[in-house]
Structures are given as structure tokens and as C-alpha cells.
């Protein structure tokens, strides 16, 4: 996390000096009320630029319908449910930098990543075309041929059976790579994120936990 140190400068301060301070993580207040370059609280520790790129989902609650698909989808526990049963982002730093995948599965285009390149995930206004084309919503079922979790179960069962007969690990690896490539291209997921995915069993366990959490919230707070 970055700096909380604030520097106070007078109007007319050099833009270069301001920029240098901002790049270092300082906030700067330009005001008539203080002498030039006075540090508001010199007891504070000088900041250092954050190592964490602030990349996390931001929910547009004007669009969100609390469907909990993001909660069920995210494998990294970024989402949670408030005491009032509302979906919320609870663990920002768990989010995988440059991965916008949850916004792709949101049926309402309600999840934004302000530092993303493309509209409307970057926070630009959602256009009718975005919704009409459903450009933001990737139907994972269509992409992978059925419910993702049952697909993973089938794939795992088939793989076990096939390996026991053939031990064709090369083919399995090729299939996995094909599947990951499809996901990477369709959802703009960085390769590092896919490479860091947990095992199928772990994904299944996490998915079940997330699904139970989402269902519990919906049961307690029906819309």
C-alpha cells in the first residue's frame, strides 16, 4: 500500500516537482495556507511507491442485480457478501493483476476495472450495442461444451480412465493447453493467471464453497 504522507505547496508550484512527488506516492495539496513544500506531518514515514498495481473489480450497483455469478466464478475469494446480503468486493489484493475475467461473466456489465484497456470494462458508459451483442458475457457453457463444473468432473473422470489404460499424458496436456488458450483468448485472461490456476479438485472445492455462499446469501435475502 502506498503513502499517506501529504505535502503542502503554494499555488504556482512547479508541475515537474508535483509530478515527481505523485510518482513517489505522495499526495500534494496546493494551497495558500502553508509555506512552500512544507510537509504536513513530518513524523510520518516517507512513502515508497506501492508494489501492488491497484487492480481489482469495482461494482456498479446501478447495474448489479446481485445475481452472485461473480462470487461463484472467482477462484481467488475476491468477492464476498455483506451483512445485508449484497455482493461486494472484499479482498481486492487477491485479484489477479490484468485479469478481467469476472467482468466477462457478469450478465449486466456491472463489474469494472478502471485500469483496463477496453470499453466498457474500463468504466466507460455501457452502450446498447454492448448489451445487444452480449460482447461482455462469455457463455462458458458454450465455450466449453456444457456446465463448467460437470465438464471438469467428466474430464477428470475420463482422464483418469484414459490414463489408466493409455497413460497418454501428451494428449491430455495438449487438450488442457487448447482449453486454456480458448479461455485466454475469449476472456483476455493473462497467461500467468491461467498458469497459476489450482488443480481441478481445488477448483471444484472452491466452486462448491463459493456456490454455497452465494446460495446462502440468496436464501437469506431473496431479491
Amino acid at each position: 500500500m502506498s503513502a499517506v504522507l501529504q505535502v503542502v505547496m503554494q499555488p504556482g508550484a512547479s508541475a515537474q516537482a508535483l509530478s515527481a512527488l505523485l510518482e513517489k506516492g505522495y499526495s500534494v495539496r496546493v494551497t495558500q495556507d502553508a509555506p512552500r513544500t512544507a510537509v504536513s506531518d513530518p513524523t510520518e514515514v516517507a512513502p515508497s511507491p506501492s508494489k501492488w498495481k491497484p487492480w481489482f473489480p469495482v461494482i456498479d450497483y446501478q447495474r448489479c442485480t446481485n445475481c452472485m455469478q461473480c462470487l461463484s466464478f472467482c477462484l481467488f475469494d475476491v468477492y464476498g457478501v455483506s451483512k445485508e446480503g449484497k455482493i461486494q468486493v472484499q479482498n481486492q489484493t487477491n485479484c489477479k493483476t490484468d485479469c478481467p475475467a469476472c467482468s466477462r461473466v457478469c450478465p449486466e456489465v456491472a463489474i469494472l476495472f478502471p485500469k483496463y484497456r477496453h470499453n466498457p470494462i474500463n468504466g466507460s458508459e455501457v452502450q446498447a450495442d454492448d448489451l445487444r451483442r452480449e460482447a461482455m458475457k462469455v457463455d462458458i457453457s458454450a465455450l466449453l461444451g456444457g456446465d463448467i463444473y460437470s465438464m471438469l468432473r467428466d474430464r477428470s473422470a475420463k482422464a483418469k480412465s484414459r490414463f489408466s489404460k493409455e497413460r497418454d499424458e501428451d494428449r491430455a496436456l495438449k487438450e488442457r493447453l487448447n482449453c486454456l488458450n480458448k479461455l485466454q483468448q475469449a476472456m483476455d485472461i493473462p497467461g500467468e493467471v491461467l498458469a497459476a490456476l489450482p488443480s481441478v479438485d481445488e477448483i471444484r472445492r472452491k466452486a462448491e464453497v463459493a456456490k454455497a455462499k452465494a446460495e446462502e446469501a440468496k436464501r437469506q435475502f431473496p431479491s
Binding site: M1, S2, A3, P11, G12, A13, S14, A15, L18, L22, E23, K24, G25, Y26, S27, V28, R29, V30, T31, Q32, S50, W52, P54, W55, F56, V58, P114, K115
Partner: peptide, 17 residues
């Protein structure tokens, strides 16, 4: 800076949020 107005400049609103 040149306009001589008072303002607050912050490194990154996302990080602050």
C-alpha cells in the same frame, strides 16, 4: 499549477479506494 488555484493532487484514486 500555473493557474494559481488551490487543488489536491493524489497519486492514484484506485489505490486510495
Amino acid at each position: 499549477a500555473d493557474a494559481g488555484v488551490e487543488f489536491e493532487a493524489v497519486p492514484d484514486l484506485c489505490e486510495m479506494s
